[in-house]
Design a binder for these strands. Structure first.
Length: 508
RNA sequence: GGUCCGUUCGUCUAGCUGGUUAGGACGCAAGAUUUUCAUUCUUGAAAUCAGGGGUUCGAAUCCCCUACGGACUACCA
């Protein structure tokens, strides 16, 4: 019964992937790699009406960015191709035909309008129409029509669909790796369309055929598929593929943090955090949705965040690399209930990852941001500023807020600080400090001692008051790292210039 | 409406085979440190384990019911 682990991630190219989908891909990847198995990327584009150009490339780029590597797939090929369902189109019909021959499916000629009318009629009676074992006898299909009539309609090119024929009153068991045994009675299930009138299979048919022919061993997908899992189980049975049926694991959903319901693509930026891994430019509306990458999240952080949304290793450590997650992951430890995304915790994860970066790396990431702000600065200087401030940043972009004053003299001074600290004799003291700076060797410790001990302490002055005003002139606010570090980075001339400007500009 | 799945601090969760002061993390609060802000450190508040019944000497942990939430209910995936 030992079978090679082969899992697939099978998105539809109907737009950008959202983080729920990314998490599904991630869990599949953890599972595959842990078992030395294969990870397959299959594109499920059987709905031609929902195709969105660029979506497939987006999906591949996003997964690549996150470090999810595939063994086979639409972008790299493999021995089980093609990996795009539209490219597999010719192979599906024979399977639909097979099910009709074996009595597991039937032709249905009901027009979409007819079905819609019936649904409306049922609705008006507060009932719900379902094409199933109770209603199919009243419909236009190969079960109710004579063989000649069916042949006539088929030959004349009348549009039809193929529907699955659920056997009556049969208990169907789905063995889910996360939820255990789930049972459903076939009487409640509807005769799903397997093959559409446009000649394409539906998800249900294509999915089973592809998973079977690609020798998929485990289907790890979102919980929204649980209700149709009995159909899939029955299809394996109908095809006689029960012995190699993959094992199912239905993942809990990622929920909207505000109200209710599952997170969806349409949530876009509404929730205060990106729902997409990468920024997405909608080709139709031109609308831009933000992405984790562009927001400054590191892919390792996103992987870590997503790994912990619905799964937990049971130890207190929370920061794990991809390799560690692959080792630790287990389907058994996936929670059963949906998880809400917490932006604050996500920020914390990114903060942790940012701290692990070297000053050189951070400087390299920060330089383009500085340039975009119109700042031209030496990398060496930027690196010093980064070293002083990185622990205060969660995202590379936060560094601007933390370091801008190194590159631009303040044009405004925080009124709250002026009110609290700036006194009538402040200019006198600051002028004295200018004098000290100009006459003392320009070294951090020497200057520090000269100002603090040699002036403030010696004259029994108010330390907080003098130092804060000093800072206010250099920074423009009561923030930033050690003041003498700032002085060293700014240099003697700039420090003095800013002090002079502050003295001139600030009035009580 | 029907079917299925779920329910431990605000959030993510530990707690798997019944006996814990129900643990951790994020966030929050306070204190310490600092010339400021932030960081960091310490401490704290925070879940009567959805509610109600059982079973048991003993239940968050097992069983049942109810409530609530969610998913699905297309010729979409």
């Amino acid at each position: 019964m030992e079978r090679k682990v082969r899992v697939r991630f099978a998105p539809s190219p109907t737009g950008p992937l959202h983080i729920g989908g990314v998490r599904t891909a991630l869990y599949n990847y953890f599972f595959a790699k842990q078992h030395g198995g294969d990870m397959i990327l299959r594109i499920e584009d059987t709905d031609q009406t929902r195709f969105v150009p660029g979506a497939e490339d987006y999906i591949i780029e996003a997964l690549t960015w996150l470090g999810i590597k595939f063994d086979e797939g639409v972008h790299i090929g493999g021995n089980y191709g093609p990996y795009r369902q539209s490219d597999r189109k010719p192979m599906y019909k024979q399977y639909a035909d097979q099910l009709i021959e074996t009595g597991w499916a039937y032709y249905a000629f009901d027009k979409p309008e007819d079905l819609e009318n019936i649904r409306k009629e049922y609705e008006s009676q507060k009932k719900n129409f379902q094409y199933d074992c109770n209603t199919r006898s009243a419909m236009q299909n190969s079960l109710t029509l004579s063989a000649e009539e069916v042949k006539r309609r088929l030959d004349s090119g009348e549009p039809y669909v193929v529907r699955f024929k659920f056997p009556a009153d049969t208990e169907i068991l789905v063995n889910d790796l996360i939820r255990g045994e789930v049972r459903m009675n076939s009487n409640l299930l509807d005769d799903k369309v397997l093959f559409k009138s446009d000649g394409m299979p539906t998800y249900h048919l294509a999915n089973i055929i592809d998973d079977h022919t690609m020798e998929v061993s485990h289907v790890i997908r979102g919980e929204e598929w649980l209700p149709s899992a009995p159909l899939h189980v029955m299809l394996y049975k109908a095809f006689g593929w029960e012995d190699t049926m993959p094992q199912f694991a239905h993942l809990p959903l990622l929920l909207k943090p505000d109200g209710n319901g599952k997170l969806s693509k349409r949530d876009g930026d509404r929730l205060g955090f990106p729902v997409f891994p990468l920024e997405w430019h909608d080709p139709k509306s031109g609308e831009i949705s933000s992405g984790y990458r562009e927001k400054g999240y590191y892919p390792e952080a996103v992987v870590n965040i997503l790994a912990f949304l619905g799964w937990n290793p049971g130890v207190e450590q929370e920061i794990f690399s991809m390799d560690e997650l692959i080792k630790l992951f287990s389907l058994e430890r996936i929670s059963k209930s949906g998880a809400k995304f917490d932006v604050e915790k996500a920020k914390w994860f990114n903060h942790k990852y940012l701290q692990t970066k070297t000053n050189e790396e951070l400087t390299a990431q920060y330089m383009p941001i500085l340039e975009a702000k119109g700042v031209k600065a030496e990398a060496a200087l930027v690196e010093k500023a980064v070293a002083l401030t990185k622990e205060r940043a969660s995202f590379i972009g936060d560094l601007w807020e933390q370091t801008a004053f190194f590159f631009q003299a303040p044009t405004e001074y925080d009124p709250a600080v002026i009110k609290k600290r700036w006194k009538e004799d402040t200019p006198t003291h600051l002028n004295k400090i200018i004098e000290i700076i100009e006459t003392t060797p320009f070294e951090k410790q020497v200057l520090h001692d000269a100002v603090i001990e040699g002036y403030i302490t010696a004259n029994q002055l108010n330390m907080g008051q003098i130092m804060n005003c000093f800072r206010l002139c250099l920074v423009g606010a009561a923030k930033g790292p050690d003041l003498f570090e700032i002085v060293m980075l700014l240099g003697k001339d700039e420090t003095v210039a800013r002090l002079r400007k502050g003295i001139e500009t600030i009035t009580i």
